[in-house]
């Protein structure tokens, strides 16, 4: 997962995250599996967060650029 643009698309990450949480909550998984699931969940959440933060940053930058260019 590169720093600025995560490999996975936001939608993919989000979808898998929901699935991971569902499995964890359903239980019935071995310790090893639930640990792995939990780690995966954290990773996916981080990816989603990265996408959202990136979007907010780009938005803010675009707006800043807009206000700069505004003719006085």
């Amino acid at each position: 997962m590169t720093a600025d643009r995560p490999e996975m698309s936001y939608e993919q990450a989000r979808e898998e995250l929901v699935e991971v949480v569902r499995k964890l909550e359903a239980g019935g998984t071995t310790l090893e599996e639930s640990l792995a699931l939990w780690e995966r969940g954290e990773e996916l959440a981080a990816t989603c967060q990265q996408w959202l933060d990136g979007a907010r940053k780009r938005l803010a930058e675009a707006q800043a650029a807009h206000t700069e260019k505004k003719p006085d």
Binding site: R14, L17, V21, E25, E42, A45
Partner: peptide
């Protein structure tokens, strides 16, 4: 919301 689920 997802992240606050107990399992996570």
């Amino acid at each position: 919301a997802i992240r606050s689920r107990p399992s996570l």
